[in-house]
Nucleic acid binder design. Structure first.
Length: 257
DNA sequence: ATGGTTGGAGCCCAA
């Protein structure tokens, strides 16, 4: 079983990169974030032609998630438990089951800036994810929580820790929120295979940081013990971040025995 | 360089 996560930064703008990438890697499951399209305009047919079943949860302009799978996609969830803001219409979550995996695909709010309203929304949102795990997931099963977390674990995930010290994506409250989520019984899949720092999944368009490998690791594979035990590899496909019209995120792939 | 680029909207917002 090969599962991938990719913040594509618009599925319609990225089709010419996504379709050949599916052909190259043939992942069993792909969790997409920032699809940026309403459900009836999602370009399903081109992806179905590659052999995928597709479930989407999108909105106009912003956010949006989807799961593609070469197997049946069951028990789909697209809502978090209600937070303090009951009018929350942001499409950022897709839970589902594929084969013997319980999958949760997340696009965690960016947070904008430490102390900003969006920052506190992000922290509250993470608590609601924890609540969803408690309600609908079993830590004794093969659980994979993946997506764009917009949070680094520690300074190994940061190309310039001084510049990012207590800044957005790297602050102590965000990292604590991530640790709290993992206390459900989840582990950082990539670190099973790679202890070294300098592995990134996102590079800023604005500073053209990719050419100097100035990035952050903010896209993750969190795994229950059973999923971690079955996991063969976790790796970042930097090649997909290079070349013409890339997303600002690279895909991350995990394989399981 | 407190800047810069990208995508989707619609004459700016979010990342």
């Amino acid at each position: 079983m090969k599962i991938a996560t990719w913040n594509v930064n618009s599925i319609r703008a990225r089709l010419s990169r996504v379709v050949p990438w599916l052909q190259e890697h043939s992942p069993d499951v792909v969790c997409l974030q920032e699809t940026k399209v309403v459900d009836d305009q999602f370009p399903k047919e081109l992806l179905e032609d590659q052999g995928y079943n597709i479930v989407v949860s999108g909105q106009k302009t912003y956010n949006g998630v989807a799961v593609l799978a070469q197997h049946q996609i069951e028990n789909v969830i697209t809502e978090l438990p209600d937070g303090s803001d009951a009018d929350d219409k942001e499409k950022r979550v897709m839970g589902c089951c594929v084969e013997d995996f319980m999958i949760l695909n997340l696009y965690v709010p960016n947070g904008r800036e430490v102390g900003h309203n969006h920052f506190y929304y992000k922290l509250e949102w993470m608590k609601r994810v924890r609540q969803l795990l408690e309600e609908s997931y079993d830590p004794d099963e093969k659980v994979v929580v993946t997506g764009d977390f917009n949070i680094t674990f520690d300074d190994r995930d940061v190309h310039d820790p001084e510049r990012y010290h207590e800044k957005i994506h790297c602050s102590t409250p965000e990292r604590d929120a991530l640790r709290d989520l993992m206390s459900f019984g989840l582990h950082d899949g990539l670190r099973k295979f790679h202890e070294e720092g300098g592995i990134y999944t996102w590079w800023d368009y604005k500073t053209r940081g990719f050419s100097r490998d100035e990035g952050l690791r903010i896209d993750h594979f969190l795994m229950s013990q059973k999923a971690l035990d079955a996991c063969d590899s976790v790796w970042v496909d930097k090649k997909a971040r290079d070349g013409k019209s890339p997303s600002d995120h690279a895909p991350v792939l995990a394989t399981f025995r």
